[in-house]
C-alpha cells in the first residue's frame, strides 16, 4: 500500500511560488522533504514554527504556511530558543545553510546542542555562501575554488556530524539531496526526537560552488555528491582505504536518555512553585 499523497501546497504559501532558488537547487528538495516529514507526523501547521537566519537556505520559511521567522545571519537558533522556551509544547524547526549555522552561527549552534533543547536543526550544506556570491564556508572542501579562494581553499573543513555529536546534540543524521526519501526519514526522526536534533544535508549549489569547480549544472553536481556518499551500513563493511574521500550518511547518533532542556525548566518551575506554596 503506497503512502497517501502529500498535499504539499497545503503546507506552502503557494501564492509565493515559484520560489527564488535556481533551477535544480537542493534547497527546494530539502523543503519538500521537510513537508513530507511534517505530513507523516500529522502535526498541525499552526503548532509549527520554522525559523531561519540569512542566506539562500534561510529564505525557506517564507514559503512555508506556518509560524515563520526569518532572522539575522547565524542567529536563528537564538530566536528559536526564545520561541521554544516561551512555547515548550510547540514544534520548532530551524533551517540553515552551512555558513549561517557553523561560521557566524557556530557559537549558537554548539550551545543549542549542549542544552539539548527540543529544536530540529536542518543544515543545507552546499559548501558555499550562495547569496553573497560564492565565498568559501567552514565546510568548503580543501582545494576547492570559491570567490574568496581563487587560488584554492586552504581552510580545513568542519565535519558537522562530529561537531554536533561532540557538542551534545542527541539526534544526529546526515543525508544528501540525491536521496529525498532518506532525507525525509531523517527529518521525521529528528523532528520526532525529543531533544536537539541536527540533520545535515549534503546539497548542491551548482551556481556558486559548481560553476567554480567544473560542475555548473544541478545534475553534475548531484552526481558528484552521489559519488562521495556511502551509507553507514555500507561503510561498516568497507576498509579505510575504500572509505578514503567518502562521506558517510545515515543516522549517526540517537540518544533518548538525556534530559531535554524545556522539560528541565518545567521541573524547575514546579519545584520553585511548590516551595513557594509551602512558604505561603
Amino acid at each position: 500500500m503506497p503512502k497517501a499523497a502529500v498535499d504539499y501546497l497545503y503546507y506552502l504559501r503557494a501564492e509565493k511560488l515559484p520560489h527564488m532558488w535556481c533551477p535544480g537547487c537542493g534547497i527546494g528538495i530539502v523543503v519538500k522533504s521537510m513537508i513530507g516529514a511534517i505530513d507523516s507526523l500529522g502535526w498541525d501547521k499552526n503548532d509549527i514554527a520554522v525559523i531561519s537566519g540569512i542566506g539562500c537556505t534561510s529564505r525557506a520559511p517564507g514559503y512555508m504556511d506556518m509560524n515563520t521567522l526569518h532572522t539575522t545571519h547565524g542567529r536563528a537558533l537564538s530566536f528559536a530558543t526564545g520561541v521554544k522556551m516561551a512555547a515548550p509544547d510547540k514544534h520548532i524547526i530551524v533551517i540553515s545553510g552551512d555558513g549561517d549555522a557553523t561560521a557566524i552561527g557556530g557559537n549558537h549552534f554548539i550551545h543549542a546542542c549542549r542544552r539539548n533543547i527540543d529544536i530540529t536543526l536542518i543544515i543545507n550544506n552546499n559548501n558555499i555562501y550562495g547569496m553573497t556570491g560564492g565565498q568559501f564556508s567552514p565546510t568548503t572542501p580543501y582545494g576547492a575554488r570559491a570567490a574568496t579562494t581563487p587560488h584554492g581553499n586552504i581552510d580545513p573543513a568542519f565535519d558537522l556530524v562530529e561537531l554536533a555529536k561532540g557538542a551534545g546534540a542527541t539526534y544526529v543524521a546526515r543525508g544528501a539531496v540525491d536521496n529525498a526519501r532518506m532525507m525525509e526519514k531523517y527529518f521525521k526522526d529528528g523532528m520526532e526526537h525529543h531533544g536537539f536534533s541536527v540533520i545535515e544535508i549534503l546539497s548542491n549549489c551548482h551556481t556558486q560552488y559548481g560553476r567554480r569547480n567544473k560542475m555548473a549544472d544541478a545534475i553534475t553536481m548531484i552526481d558528484w555528491i552521489s559519488d562521495q556518499v556511502v551509507s553507514n551500513k555500507k561503510a561498516a563493511k568497507m576498509s579505510p582505504e575504500e572509505l578514503e574521500g567518502k562521506i558517510i550518511t545515515g543516522e549517526m547518533y540517537h540518544n533518548t536518555e538525556l534530559a531535554e532542556y524545556t522539560d528541565e525548566y518545567a521541573k524547575l518551575i514546579e519545584r520553585v512553585q511548590a516551595k513557594a506554596a509551602l512558604k505561603a
Binding site: 515559484p18 520560489h19 533551477p23 537547487c25 527546494g28 519538500k32 539531496v177 529525498a180
Partner: peptide, 13 residues
C-alpha cells in the same frame, strides 16, 4: 511505475 522519484526529487513542487 509510480515510484514517485521525480516528484520527491523535484525542487520546485
Amino acid at each position: 511505475t509510480f515510484c514517485k522519484l521525480c516528484e520527491l526529487q523535484c525542487p520546485d513542487f
